[in-house]
């Protein structure tokens, strides 16, 4: 696993100080903490439809935030004990898949209840796709009685780094994210909009896929949402702490809403 060198030290947010200049890097590697990485769930007969996209996302996160990231992507089976070595896993697909075994479901259930985070991305670009059906079937077994619910615009994922209005992706299949709740925490988020498609690069270094219908501005929004998701995985709902809510409300009031 490669680790990203920490480039700069942090300064205050733009609203506060606006200082330029970076400090010298402090250390080439984290203490014992591995850089933050994402693992991909390995499902039989479900290949990765967006190779390189996860690495692209983590590179963006490392470049734009204080998080030490790793662009290496490991794969892990949902029924494997090694799942618990990866606090953040994603499931990306563009086709249907067979029902997960009971062991895999039980493992995933323990995983999300004990602090793991699962992000699911439908790369098919089609509403009610076979992948979508497979996901819903699996999640219904994951937390019986919980059920996927629509994530509201005030959810912490929309304000974990950027202030956002709602869900975006390479496509706009559904303008919202869905999630499973455990208490007041959302350890499972589901995007129907091929979020990782916005990062996928072609061999020549450009973006491989067009963003529909909003073009590059939509791609920017999608990239921001991706960064928000990673921040959310690490910070959870800390923005909802009272002190942050107050500050956010004041900022939103000054900005006239949710930003641009």
């Amino acid at each position: 696993m490669s680790s990203r060198t920490r480039r700069e030290f942090l300064t205050l947010a733009a609203a506060g100080i606006g200082l330029g200049g970076a400090l010298t890097a402090r250390g080439a590697h984290a203490l014992g903490e591995e850089p933050v990485g994402i693992a991909r769930l390995l499902i039989p007969n479900l290949p990765d439809p967006r190779p390189g996209a996860i690495a692209g996302l983590m590179d963006e996160v490392g470049s734009n935030s204080s998080i030490l990231t790793s662009t290496a992507v490991q794969t892990v089976a949902p029924g494997s004990r090694s799942l618990f070595n990866h606090p953040f896993v994603v499931l990306i697909g563009d086709r249907g898949f067979d029902p997960l075994s009971d062991e895999a479901i039980a493992n995933l259930r323990l995983y999300v209840r004990e602090g793991g985070f699962l992000f699911i991305d439908d790369a098919s670009g089609v509403r009610d796709s076979k992948f979508d059906a497979s996901v819903r079937r699996a999640l219904a077994r994951l937390l019986p009685g919980a059920g996927l619910t629509r994530i509201g615009r005030d959810h912490a994922v929309y304000r974990s780094f950027f202030l956002m209005r709602g869900a975006v992706g390479r496509m706009m299949v559904r303008p919202y994210l869905e999630g499973l709740w455990v208490g007041d925490i959302t350890p499972v988020l589901y995007s129907s909009n091929d979020l990782f498609g916005a990062w996928m690069r072609s061999p020549d270094g450009g973006y491989a896929l067009d963003v529909v219908p909003g073009g590059e501005s939509q791609r920017t929004q999608a990239r921001r949402l991706g960064l928000n998701v990673v921040e959310f995985a690490l910070t959870s709902n800390y923005k909802r702490d009272v002190v942050h809510v107050r500050s956010l409300i004041e900022r939103m009031r000054r900005q006239g809403g949710y930003g641009e």
Partner: peptide, 17 residues
Amino acid sequence: LRSNNDGQLVRVGRPLS
């Protein structure tokens, strides 16, 4: 949270939370 890298994401407007 804030890195002082001026990545593209940060340059646009004031959308940060």
